[in-house]
């Protein structure tokens, strides 16, 4: 057709990519590294304090998770976490606080649609896949481990 842009889909896609402004990669990388590192250091501080008060390593790790999840939820609730996320990208999405954010954010939003079918049904809208594939992989690993133990050990 004469009234269309004279390019194939592939050509057009490459053309658009060449025109599009690129993400500021260097800045993103530095921020992700620093913010991610800081969140992990906070985790270590919580862990060390717990151990100082006499918890064993495993319990201290559990306390660390719970406290970080609380912090993630709290910062999401007071409308701060999305700002950190916008600034730090993966730096705040990959740590467990980001996991917490991805559960709390839909919870807050879908509450407006009711508690059971809104909040209840949509809480894991974003984080659900992480649990599904995490648990499924662990069952697979467990099964392989069980077979190896049965027949080879």
């Amino acid at each position: 057709m004469s009234s269309n842009i004279k390019m194939t889909n592939e050509e057009y896609s490459d053309y658009v990519d060449s025109k599009a402004k690129k993400s500021p990669i260097f800045k993103n990388f530095v921020l992700a590294f620093i913010v991610g590192g800081i969140i992990c250091v906070i985790g270590q501080v919580i862990c060390n304090i717990s151990m100082y008060f006499g918890l064993d390593e495993k319990s201290a790790a559990t306390v660390t998770s719970i406290v970080l999840i609380f912090l993630g939820a709290f910062l999401t609730a007071i409308n701060v976490y999305w700002r950190i996320g916008k600034f730090a990208g993966a730096g705040s999405a990959v740590p467990i606080t980001g996991f917490s954010n991805s559960i709390v954010a839909p919870a807050i939003e879908f509450k407006l649609d009711g508690y059971i079918l809104g909040l209840g049904a949509n809480m894991f809208k974003v984080a659900g896949p992480v649990l599904v594939y995490g648990v499924a992989t662990s069952v697979g690993v467990g099964f392989i481990y069980w077979i190896i133990k049965m027949f080879f050990m």
Partner: peptide
């Protein structure tokens, strides 16, 4: 800091 930072960097 370095370990956590690198893992997040891979994500980014």
């Amino acid at each position: 800091f370095i370990t956590g930072g690198i893992i997040c960097l891979i994500g980014q």
